[in-house]
Design a protein around this nucleic acid. Structure first.
Lengths: 234, 234
DNA sequence: CCAAAAGTGTTTTCGTTACACCCATGC
DNA sequence: GCATGGGTGTAACGAAAACACTTTTGG
């Protein structure tokens, strides 16, 4: 690697020293199941945090960009390809990783848990309810909180929650999802009114099956009204 | 540095490879002068971007955290210490820096230009109007746009603009500042009403001096109503 | 028939917008 | 006295919130 000449006025440290920082990405992968918002975590196997839950992450390779690294992790862990991903914040406290200086770029992503029956049993991968996760390894609890906060802001005016749902869903499911994310109760009539007004939904003229009560209508996301969702880069 | 054992399952690349990424911070330093929003830039001296404007940035040292690195740059370049700073986004395209793999964490900060008569003439440091900056080095134009967009979102409901103004200011100056940031015209009566309702201002019972028209009242930011502003970490 | 959730409108409230005239100062 | 911006209030509008009853299905 060539010298970084933009920074060469800094004589006190050699280039070699500047490269002693490692870079990782961590993905807060949200899912929705049993009327709860969940996050995909894995049992940590480094001795300082043995047995604690950890987010899914990996070091960034020198030849891949930050999005690419995140999509690679998502693919490796969930088998999913076409996933909503958003960069949130970079965490870089000097001692956040016991093994050395590692700076991590936190992302959140949204997946439909049902699309992904995969790779769960082998490692200690686990969908954990977001509101009920006590301790985590590293600074991952803080990263999770930050990403959850960002998700809450995002859903307020962007149609991203559909990434957490199956193609067809009822208004009850949709409302329950919002309630889980925002951790508040919503008024059913106002909720429905608002969604119909925003024109985010397409009525499929189908009804729910196998519910122990009056079945509700099924809808899909009005994708046509928006651009295509963010795509995997390469 | 010890081995990063959390990632040791990755056998394909040696640890040495992973440390071939350098990390920098870049600061989009906003100021307000002559009814314009400005950004502090410096003439780039690397050959690929010779003479283009560049943001102020530097490599992160192995023993300083991300905030610390940003505050160091702000101190070195403006002499200012107690500055508003906010992390915005991390940019990491593989080829964003011609000299090698450099990932940069972009921040914006807000300073009062008048507090800072310093260090301007020596290097090619320069306050440039934000709306009138054509080409920049690296991906700095994109970084600037992203930070400006974030600033616009931020000012909509957080009292941060006061960092761009002197201690005492008139409502005209405040409104002109919002108009510069948002790039729109605002209604004077509604603007005043809103600020008084929000209780963000303290009436100083003083008047402007040396204005060629009826002097306006001076106000200061109602700091007491909010916590202290973000402080330098160390 | 009972339980559970679906479906449906109206009223009130509150914040936002639009808008015009007189006043104080410097020149 | 004229130019410049300071200072002020009200009406219209639109978005969000509060609120209850009837309908449909499964069991």
């Amino acid at each position: 690697m060539k010298q970084i000449s933009r920074f060469s006025h800094l004589g006190e440290l050699s280039d070699k020293d500047y490269f002693r920082i490692a870079l990782s990405v961590d993905c807060v992968i949200f899912g929705f199941e049993d009327d709860e918002l969940k996050v995909l975590v894995i049992k940590c196997n480094i001795k300082e945090y043995k047995g604690k839950w950890s987010l899914l992450g990996d070091l960034v390779r020198p030849d891949e960009d930050l999005e690419g690294a995140s999509y690679r992790i998502l693919k490796e862990r969930t088998g999913l390809d076409d996933v909503y991903l958003e960069q949130v914040q970079t965490f870089g406290k000097v001692n956040r990783h016991p093994a050395g200086r590692v700076i991590t770029i936190a992302n959140f992503s949204l997946v439909n848990i049902k699309d992904h029956q995969l790779k769960l049993s082998d490692n200690e991968l686990h969908w954990h309810p977001v509101n009920d996760i006590s301790e985590m390894a590293f600074d991952h609890k803080e990263i999770l909180s930050t990403c959850l906060e960002r998700l809450r802001e995002k859903v307020a005016d962007h149609p991203v929650v559909f990434n957490l749902l199956p193609k067809k869903f009822s208004l009850r499911e949709l409302q329950s999802l919002y309630e889980s994310i925002l951790n508040i109760k919503l008024d059913r009539r106002n909720f429905r009114k608002k969604f119909f007004m925003m024109d985010w939904l397409v009525d499929l003229d189908e009804l729910e099956q196998d519910v122990p009560h009056r079945p509700g209508k099924l809808y899909k996301f009005n994708q046509a009204k928006f651009g295509r969702k963010p795509k995997k880069v390469s």
